[in-house]
C-alpha cells in the first residue's frame, strides 16, 4: 500500500516556486531517503505535506486519498508525523509535556509516554526538565519521541543528523533501524550519506527542486551514492 505519493507536484512559497514536477512515493513498511545539497527543496517536500508550502499543481495522496487543501494540523491527525529540521522543541514545556503535545491527535497505537521512555531511557530521567535544556542528541530523541506519540503511519525526519556528533548520529541510525524493523515506514531527508546508507532502502536525489535520480540502495557503495548526489 502506498502511504505517500507525489505526482508531478509543483510547490511554492508565495510566488517563489521551489519544487518542479516532483514525483515520489513511500509504501507501507518502506524506508526511503531524499538526498540533495542545501537549498534544493528537500524541506519543501515536507512543508508541502504540512501545507506550509502551497502545492500549485500535481497530485499529492496520503494513504491512497488525494490531499487537496492541506492544513498543518491535519497531517499528524491523518497519520503523517514529522521530526522537523532543527528539532523545534517547545521551549516552555518540559520533556514530558513535549511528548504529551505530540499525542494531540490521540490516534490509537503502540506509542505512549511510557513506551517512548522505554525507547529513550534518558528522557525518563529528564522528564520534568525543560525540553530545550538537554543536549542536541537528547533533543533529537525527544523530537523523535514526540513524533511517535501520534502513532503515525509514516514518520518523516528532516535532517535529523544536523548538528549532532558522529557517535550520536550512529546511535540515531540504530534507533531508526530498530523502529523500521518494528514496521515503521520512514521518509528520511538527509545529507549524511552514512545515515542514509544505514537506514534507507530506496533513495531520491533532488537538485534545483526536481528529482534527478532515484534507485535502490542495496549493493550501492557510499562512493557511488555520493557521485549520484553530486550530479
Amino acid at each position: 500500500m502506498t502511504l505517500l505519493q507525489f505526482e508531478g507536484v509543483c510547490s511554492a512559497y508565495g510566488s517563489a516556486r521551489v519544487l518542479h514536477d516532483v514525483s515520489l512515493s513511500v509504501s507501507k513498511g518502506e524506508r526511503v531517503a531524499i538526498l540533495g545539497r542545501n537549498g534544493v527543496g528537500k524541506t519543501t517536500v515536507v512543508n508541502t505535506c504540512l501545507g506550509l508550502a502551497s502545492m500549485q499543481s500535481g497530485r499529492m495522496a496520503f494513504l491512497g486519498r488525494d490531499v487537496k487543501a492541506v492544513r498543518t494540523f491535519t497531517a499528524a491527525r491523518s497519520g503523517l508525523s514529522v521530526v522537523p529540521q532543527g528539532r523545534r522543541i517547545v521551549s516552555n514545556l518540559t520533556v514530558r509535556e513535549n511528548l504529551i503535545l505530540g499525542g494531540a491527535p490521540q490516534r490509537k497505537g503502540r506509542w505512549s509516554v511510557d513506551e517512548v521512555f522505554r525507547l529513550f531511557p534518558i528522557l525518563k530521567e529528564r522528564a520534568e526538565t525543560p525540553g530545550t535544556a538537554m543536549s542536541g542528541g537528547q533533543q533529537q530523541m525527544l523530537a523523535i519521541g514526540r513524533a511517535l506519540m501520534s502513532n503515525p503511519d509514516l514518520l518523516i525526519l528532516d535532517e535529523p543528523s544536523e548538528g549532532l556528533a558522529p557517535v550520536v548520529v550512529d546511535e540515531l541510525g540504530e534507533t531508526l533501524v530498530k523502529l523500521a524493523s518494528g514496521g515503521m515506514s520512514i521518509l528520511l531527508i538527509e545529507q549524511n550519506f552514512g545515515l542514509v546508507h544505514k537506514v534507507a532502502e530506496r533513495y531520491y536525489v533532488l537538485s534545483k527542486g526536481s528529482v534527478v535520480e532515484e534507485g535502490k540502495l542495496a549493493g550501492l557503495s557510499m562512493e557511488t551514492l555520493k557521485k549520484h548526489v553530486a550530479v
Binding site: 498543518t72 494540523f73 523545534r88 503535545l101 505530540g102 501520534s150
Partner: peptide, 24 residues
Amino acid sequence: SRAGLYVRASSVDPVTTAMQGVDT
C-alpha cells in the same frame, strides 16, 4: 489541562504546535 498545554505551546511556537495535530 491538555488545552492549557496546547495554549502554552502555541504561545511560543504555533507552527510546531500545529504540526503535532493541534488546530491552532
